[in-house]
């Protein structure tokens, strides 16, 4: 009967060094590939960017006065959205009834944040910028 070591066959009948090296290299490649895939998937989720831009937009709206137009540079968000197949016009949505900003950079969902300003707000992507227009709320809105 074949005698076994702790993990592998006994030293006397171990595989040749060439096979051992190949197994070693394959296992290492597998391990580091898994790590790279995990890090790449985690970084492409864009969750932190979504959160940061939603909060930044809500704070800008809250501190803006009626009549103001603000441009926010968001090239990194646009790149993340493009990579994840999200159209530029779907990145920032403003729900006026709910006073809510939603930023979507991946197909998993959007991060939303409420603003307390009672203004008439609109937002649209223009080139690498997000243009936020804050107007006085009309009586019939």
């Amino acid at each position: 009967m074949e005698k076994r070591g702790f993990l592998f066959l006994s030293r006397k009948k171990a595989a040749s060094p060439v096979i051992e090296n190949i197994i070693f290299i394959v296992l290492n490649i597998m391990f580091f590939s898994m790590m790279i895939v995990f890090v790449a998937r985690a970084s492409s989720s864009a969750a932190v960017l979504e959160q940061a831009y939603a909060k930044q937009t809500a704070l800008i709206i809250d501190s803006a006065k009626p009549g103001m137009s603000i441009l926010v540079y968001m090239e990194d968000a646009l790149k993340a959205a493009k990579k994840n197949g999200v159209k530029a016009e779907d990145i920032v949505k403003i729900d006026r009834a709910e006073s809510r900003v939603a930023v979507k950079l991946s197909k998993r969902g959007a991060f939303s944040y409420r603003f307390f300003s009672d203004a008439d707000v609109s937002a649209a992507i223009q080139g690498n910028f997000l243009k936020i227009d804050v107007k006085e709320k009309s009586q019939n809105v």
Binding site: R11, A14, E20, F24
Partner: peptide
């Protein structure tokens, strides 16, 4: 029998790298 000392002292490179 498993012995860390034996693995470290082993002359075969393959045995070293495939250790636990």
């Amino acid at each position: 029998m498993f012995s860390p000392k034996r693995i470290v002292n082993s002359k075969k490179a393959g045995e070293k790298v495939l250790s636990i």
